[in-house]
Design a protein around this nucleic acid. Structure first.
Lengths: 237, 237
DNA sequence: TCGAACACGTGAAAC
DNA sequence: TGTTTCACGTGTTCG
């Protein structure tokens, strides 16, 4: 039932007889723990019993510790959908990689969410995003943040058409009477170089100026359009 | 320089002398590996040397393995910004929890992204989202997916105004000539009950039908507006 | 036979 | 004090 008890008795005797250094199986390099060495006597059994019990407690505690660690390792194998026979080291390496990936991912997403929400100040940015050299296109990412108005998106489209740019992707978020649009546009290389970034920037600036003009007209006593009034309903959450 | 070599010689002798069971310090429960037991002779040193070399290789390999594992554990301590004295077990438990959290988080985000992207089929959904009982408002989340047209958002605002609903938050994504709008709107409780969900649904339906009508008019030879043509530039990435 | 990976029991140190 | 955690060297198994 307890195959290790006899071995431990045996080991205990060995340890008492000072065989194999400090009592450790192999290496040791220990200095202390020279046992009292009561070779035979009545007190010996008591001391041996105490030591034996301590040793067994220690052994079982260590076993429980190993079980705890391995249990968590198995959980990690599950969440990473790893084979149950993947190395501990390999598994941990994958875990490190996965955690880093997930952290980076959520960081990027939260950042992109932040940039997508409208801010309180007017903003224009046009970035050179990349080239599709094979089909002769330059990609820009344009971002525009300003007061909301109903004709903003159509005006934006007109601008892009006049510049012979194609809209690959468009997102618009409206919040609290403000709006932010992010557009990914492709410009024809035969028509534009990278410097056409400035064309787009100037066009967006004129768009902002037009918005300001409209707002001033409206605020100077002119009747506000139904659309504008509808947009006024947008309030902060 | 090699403090363990003497111990290993010692152990080797012990093992050769069959002390402590199968050669393991404690437990064993082994069956095989009863060594040839050439107590003394010329062949003994060769066998001992071989065994010694094997044992040393084994020991060093095991040390390298431990170093690999602990190295990865330390990396995990860094990415989790844990104290360097956190338990292996506790650390691994935290890692499991963190990975699960991050997976859930990215899942939720990607799901919300999915619902935000336009689909190929027209869709309307209005959900009762919650109540702000203290200020007498019911919150709805309305989602609309259809072909893109420039007057969609203003029309939407008109509908909400006619229903005396306030837009708390509006998002619109346009992609490939399709658009999806998600609106969070607040309805006055004194004016509407929860059943006003149907008002909103019907209004959105009429919006969709109006879009279809416009499209049919356009496709039946009528001149397409500049805006519509501008929107045609939106292509899939 | 050899190497890689694991569980085990131990000594030592921290608290 | 005893309890807990770690590193170590070992025996064992698998490819």
């Amino acid at each position: 039932m307890q195959p290790e008890s006899s071995d431990q008795m045996l080991y205990s005797f060995l340890s008492g007889n000072q065989i194999s250094g400090g009592g450790l199986c192999g290496s040791s390099s220990s200095t202390s723990s020279y046992y009292p060495l009561a070779i035979s006597g009545i007190g010996e059994t008591m001391a041996q019993d105490r030591a034996l019990a301590a040793l067994r407690n220690h052994k079982e505690a260590e076993r429980r510790r190993r079980e705890r660690i391995n249990s968590h390792l198995n959980k990690l194998r599950n969440v990473l959908s790893c084979n149950s026979k993947t190395d501990k080291a390999t598994l941990l390496a994958k875990v490190v990689q996965r955690v880093k990936e997930l952290k980076q991912q959520t960081l990027e997403i939260s950042e992109s969410d932040q940039t997508l929400l409208p801010s309180e100040t007017d903003e224009i940015s046009v970035l050179h995003y990349g080239d599709y050299s094979n089909d002769g296109h330059i990609i820009f990412k344009a971002s525009l943040c300003c007061d909301d108005r109903s004709d903003l998106l159509p005006d934006l489209m007109e601008i892009l058409k006049s510049l012979h740019m194609k809209t690959l992707r468009a997102e618009m978020v409206t919040l609290g009477g403000r709006t932010r649009s992010v557009l990914v546009v492709a410009a024809d290389k035969e028509m534009h170089g990278v410097e056409s970034v400035h064309f787009l920037q100037n066009a967006l600036k004129s768009l902002l100026e037009r918005s300001s003009k409209l707002l001033m007209e409206r605020s100077s006593g002119g009747e506000r359009s139904k659309r504008r009034r509808a947009l006024d309903q947008i309030i902060m959450v």
